[in-house]
């Protein structure tokens, strides 16, 4: 194996954690987008003429989706911070 190929493989191996973080961030963003649509849909449903029980059910779903989105956003922030943190430490090295 050529030295260059070996170095490339090594670089890829060392950067795997970062890549998986990027993948996770991308995936969470996609899910967040779908959840945002779902939240919008639920809000529209709340505007419809619903009885009290149905209203409570939709509201509960809305609360859960909202909480899930919050969790997702917090995780995105966390990942960003980790990403920028590792970038800074590398720069310091």
């Amino acid at each position: 194996m050529k030295t260059r190929t070996l170095l490339e493989k090594l670089g890829h191996f060392l950067g795997q954690d970062k890549a998986s973080q990027r993948e996770e961030m991308k995936s969470i963003r996609e899910v967040l987008k779908k959840l945002k649509d779902k939240e919008k849909h639920l809000r529209e449903e709340l505007d419809r003429d619903l009885d009290q029980d149905e209203r409570h059910e939709v509201q509960a779903k809305l609360d859960v989706v909202h909480a899930q989105r919050l969790k997702g956003l917090d995780r995105v922030k966390e990942l960003r911070a980790e990403h920028s943190g590792s970038g800074k430490s590398k720069a310091a090295d």
């Binding site: 993948e23 996770e24 995936s27 969470i28 996609e30 509960a60 859960v64 997702g72």
Partner: peptide, 20 residues
């Protein structure tokens, strides 16, 4: 797998549900 991990990250635990 990645989507599964994303789902797990966003899923609510008992405390989250109790809070709501």
């Amino acid at each position: 797998q990645t989507e599964r991990i994303a789902g797990e990250r966003l899923a609510l635990d008992e405390q989250d549900l109790a809070r709501i």
